[in-house]
């Protein structure tokens, strides 16, 4: 059972302020930390668990500049075997479909039964890569996958897709297939010290758009469904009444409000 897992390096904005930069199309990343996209971390774990159970090879692929090597190496340290990084100025401004086209071109030279991606990314949140990739490759696909069972010697998979309200939709598909992995499907491991040392020595193959046989019209904004025109701060409704002061004061004010409302 050979697998590909696609990972993306993203800024962690979950608990940080996000400021629009001067261009209006980007953000100020100077005070943000970066790491692997959250769903992708679960996708890596799922691929490695299946490899450990069934044997085979895990190829890690990422589209990004040299800084993406850190997330690739972490996936290698956890049990990935090979790595490819797709880097080209032509990829700038790619939306989900342009990314999917590049990934589709990259996996053509790799032997695989399942391609894993995250179901969505923490930055743009398009949630369209796995399904677009499956269609481009002409194989079955499913996204929001929160359960995966390999059946019939790897000829089929049974996946549980997470629907609204915690309902799970079970579907069976033939392989090869593309699966978009949702968070919570497993417990991602930490890399071992030994794994990290070994991963540091592994080669990461770099491929450009032309190496992948892509035309300029397939890449970046030209190859995308839509281009980002401008960021604006979100329109917030009526803001909360912010209680000001030191923790002692704010906690006291809040306790008073709860009492007044009969909630204490």
């Amino acid at each position: 059972m050979n697998m590909v897992v696609c990972v993306k390096r993203v800024p962690d904005t979950s608990e940080s302020e996000v400021h629009i930069d001067g261009s209006g199309k980007g953000i100020d990343t100077s005070r943000l930390s970066f790491g692997i996209n959250e769903c992708d971390n679960y996708a890596v774990e799922e691929a490695i668990q299946k490899k450990e159970a069934l044997g085979g090879n895990v190829t890690v692929i990422s589209l990004g500049d040299k800084q993406s090597d850190e997330v690739i190496r972490m996936a290698l340290a956890k049990g990935g075997d090979d790595a490819i990084r797709l880097e080209d100025e032509a990829f700038a401004g790619s939306d989900a479909v342009a990314v999917a086209k590049a990934l589709a071109a990259a996996v053509k030279d790799v032997e695989w039964d399942i391609v894993f991606t995250g179901a969505l990314t923490d930055d743009d949140g398009y949630a369209a890569v796995p399904v677009a990739l499956g269609e481009i490759l002409g194989v079955p696909f499913a996204t929001y996958v929160k359960k995966l069972e390999v059946m019939d010697d790897g000829k089929k998979v049974k996946v549980g897709r997470e629907l609204e309200g915690g309902l799970m939709e079970m579907v069976e598909m033939t392989t090869p297939c593309v699966l978009g992995i949702q968070t919570g499907i497993n417990e991602p491991r930490y890399a071992s010290f030994k794994g990290i040392k070994q991963a540091a020595r592994k080669e990461i193959t770099i491929k450009s758009a032309s190496d992948l046989g892509l035309d300029a019209s397939d890449c970046g904004e030209a190859g995308s469904w839509a281009a980002l025109e401008q960021f604006t701060p979100p329109v917030v409704g009526e803001m909360a009444e912010i209680l000001e002061g030191e923790p002692d004061e704010t906690a006291g004010k809040l306790a008073g409000i709860l009492k007044e409302k009969g909630l204490v």
């Binding site: 479909v97 499956g134 696909f141």
Partner: peptide
């Protein structure tokens, strides 16, 4: 709908028809 159903289908529809898609 940008739902667990819609997201599992719309990107493939956009690829197969060649029409552009914006999600969510």
């Amino acid at each position: 709908g940008n739902t667990a159903q819609g997201v599992d289908m719309a990107p493939a529809l956009a690829v197969s028809t060649g029409f552009p898609l914006v999600t969510d």
